[in-house]
Amino acid sequence: MHDRTDADLLASVADGDREALRILHDRHVVWLRLRLTRRCSDADVVDEAVQDTFVAVWRGAAQWNGTGEPAAWIWGIAIRRMLGVLRGRRRWGRDRTLQESTPTVVTTAEEVVVMGVQHGDLAGALMLLSPELRAVVQATVLDGLTTREAGDLLGIPTGTVKTRMMRARIELRGALA
């Protein structure tokens, strides 16, 4: 079963195959944890987001539409889960601070940027991009991957990554002007 593609494994997970989920987890947990750690310095937040991600994969594997790479789909879940964990902890941290029982949660500069990308003007501009262009921007700019790594993740040639990034820059400049 280890030679099966991620797409095959996701289809099996959608059918309730726990072994397929275990293999998918083993394939992706290390890079997923590393990428999330680049965005959040709190290991507990990263751990919770990783766990929530694979629970969401288990529950929502049937929602993957078969386009793009499964790894990119999993990453999309992971970053949204991490932001949800951060929002929940901030909310809880503020409530506790009002009761004067614990200090507030410390936010890193990168966490502030990620939140801004998800909810600021840039979020609106990113949503105007086609899914193909948005995926390249997310992989190269937000995730810090090289064009080669982004191409591997997205299943496209390196030259296509560069071309899509150039097109995305032009469209983002127009949307943010």
Rank of each mutant, 00 (worst) to 15 (best):
V57R: 09
R35H: 12
T140L: 05
I74W: 07
L9Q: 05
G84S: 14
G124L: 13
A125I: 03
W64F: 14
E171N: 12
G116Q: 12
E111I: 05
G60K: 12
L24M: 12
H2Y: 12
I79W: 01
R167M: 14
I79M: 04
V55P: 00
T147Y: 07
D95S: 08
W64M: 02
G88I: 08
W73T: 02
E48S: 12
L145P: 00
L98M: 10
T67F: 13
R164E: 01
V137Q: 09
L145I: 02
A150P: 11
L9E: 05
L21G: 15
T140Y: 10
D15C: 11
G116P: 00
A123I: 08
V55M: 08
L128H: 11
G116Y: 06
L126K: 04
A20Y: 06
A11T: 07
V112C: 04
A123M: 05
R4H: 13
L10I: 04
D52R: 15
E171H: 13
G84W: 06
R164H: 13
T163V: 13
E149P: 05
S130C: 09
V106R: 15
R89A: 06
G144E: 08
Q51C: 04
L142S: 03
R96Y: 11
T108F: 03
A14M: 11
R38Q: 13
D6Q: 07
V117A: 03
G93S: 15
W64S: 04
S12C: 10
E171M: 08
V106P: 11
R80I: 00
G88L: 06
Q99W: 07
A123V: 05
A72N: 05
R173Y: 01
R89D: 05
L145G: 00
A168F: 06
G16T: 09
R80M: 04
T160K: 15
R81E: 15
G84P: 00
L21E: 08
Q99G: 12
R4Y: 11
V113I: 12
W73K: 02
A56P: 04
T37N: 02
R33F: 14
A71W: 02
R27W: 06
